[in-house]
Simulated assay, not measured.
Amino acid sequence: MNLGAELLSRGIPLYADWTLHPRIVSQLWVRYGRAAVDLFASKENAQCQLFFSMRDLNAPLGVDALAHDWPPGLLYTFPPLALIPPTLARVREQRHTLILIAPHWPAMYWLAEIYQLLCGQPWQLPLRRDILSQAGWAIFHPDPERLALWACP
């Protein structure tokens, strides 16, 4: 009944379960076009009707996007940090087009590869207290400014 309390009673929120505020997502679609598939999602945080899940066996396109072929067209992804390098490798090798949501952390080795793969102007997401949430908007990210999220086409 209370998703936020239940999630917090089990420990800290999971990185892969954060969802962007709907207004930010709407701005992404205006800037870059509406994506058809969300690559790393759950039924609670998917930004597209079609998505691959990290663990939900009933996801429309299956579990583990990296284990499947990706459909053509514009894709959306807000992957866990550990999945950014293999996502970039897939984009480079198979020439997919996607909107990647990732922290802009200059010390991260994959940031240079993101710059090499850009096909448009990256956009620093506006900072707002509720930019990321979980459990049906019951839990907000405790430190969104530290993430410094950017959308990278």
Rank of each mutant, 00 (worst) to 15 (best):
H68E: 06
F78V: 03
T87M: 07
A35V: 04
A59I: 11
L74E: 10
K43Y: 06
S133Y: 15
L117R: 02
D143E: 14
S53N: 11
E113C: 02
C48H: 09
L88C: 08
P79W: 00
R129F: 03
C119D: 04
L20N: 04
L98M: 12
M54L: 15
S26A: 15
D130P: 10
T97L: 11
L7P: 05
M108P: 02
P103H: 02
W105G: 06
A5K: 15
V25A: 11
G11Q: 11
N58Y: 07
I24Y: 05
G4A: 15
I99W: 01
L117C: 05
I114G: 05
L118W: 01
R10M: 14
V63P: 13
R31E: 00
K43R: 10
R10T: 14
G62N: 12
A135D: 15
I12P: 09
Y32D: 01
Q134L: 10
D64Q: 09
L74W: 10
T19C: 14
W123H: 05
Q94T: 09
A151C: 09
P142N: 05
L100G: 01
C152D: 07
M54I: 13
T97C: 11
L88F: 06
I139M: 08
G120W: 00
P85E: 08
D56K: 07
P86M: 12
D38E: 12
Q49V: 06
P86E: 13
G4I: 08
A107Y: 07
I101Y: 03
C48G: 04
R55N: 13
L127P: 14
A102G: 01
H68F: 11
Q116E: 14
V25L: 12
H141V: 10
I24E: 06
R23W: 14
I99S: 00
A46G: 01
H104T: 06
Y76S: 06
P122S: 00
V30I: 11
I12L: 14
W110D: 00
A107E: 05
Q49F: 05
